[in-house]
Design a binder for these strands. Sequence first.
DNA 1: TAAATTACTTGCAACTTGCAAGTAATTTTA
DNA 2: TAAAATTACTTGCAAGTTGCAAGTAATTTA
Lengths: 138, 138
Amino acid sequence: MPSSKLNNKCPIDYALEVFGDRWTLLVLRDLMLSGKRHYRELMTSKEGIATNILASRLQKMETDGLIIRKQNSEDKRQIFYELTEKALDLIPVLLEISRWSVIYDKDTAAPPELMRRFNEEPQQLIAELKDAARTRQT
Amino acid sequence: MPSSKLNNKCPIDYALEVFGDRWTLLVLRDLMLSGKRHYRELMTSKEGIATNILASRLQKMETDGLIIRKQNSEDKRQIFYELTEKALDLIPVLLEISRWSVIYDKDTAAPPELMRRFNEEPQQLIAELKDAARTRQT
DNA sequence: TAAATTACTTGCAACTTGCAAGTAATTTTA
DNA sequence: TAAAATTACTTGCAAGTTGCAAGTAATTTA
């Protein structure tokens, strides 16, 4: 007799499989909050990701359903990386992490207006950030 | 002339330094939500952390101010790992991550009542979970 | 048509992880 | 009270992952 409960993996465990490495969250940050869309733009983030690591992460993120790879029809060398809803729904996670870091690390800063709005009207801020990201990529 | 703005590190970057590896968040989950307090208990989590990795992570977590190591005066072999406020303030991050995983991975499950309360009265749930964790370790 | 640009891939050394075995300080058991 | 068990680790080494430098294929620009 099979168990009626097949769902038994820990949610933290699943999240770590998808973005629990040194780079995936930074790439998501750049795509979601900095408006980057191209490989060359992602290469310029100040954390200095290596080109082979970026390539392998983008491939894994596509496999995991976080991004979609689209060729630019006007310049066929270029690839756009578009975010899926699954990725956009990590915005609250990024904001919650940011709130924590700003409290506990004196060398860390986030745009104060962003943090103020996250405290005062989180739902509206999240909706706006998602819309902004969606608009950028259409 | 030095810049007036010395705070310039990205909050995501700081968080990744502290818990952006494969194991730290799982150890925090076990200490915060499963009520584990001892090395031997942490060794039994189903993800199967290696003993040397657990030891090195606990050391780093102490350095980073997430846990405090306390010897049991009644059995001097035993060590209690206690959570700091800095660690307890990651509860919202863990809950936000869990919400995302439950939505996007069909094999993932979290206690439904927990998720319901996180949607309906997040502040109270967070306060309760923090209190429960604090109570366990005193 | 040669140079530049874009998005990668390849090769290799250095670092990190995972597994198995071992150890020191206690506490329990026979 | 001596031997066995328990607890919290450490050590050694093989296997996997990351980081750096260089190279490449397909375009587009000068």
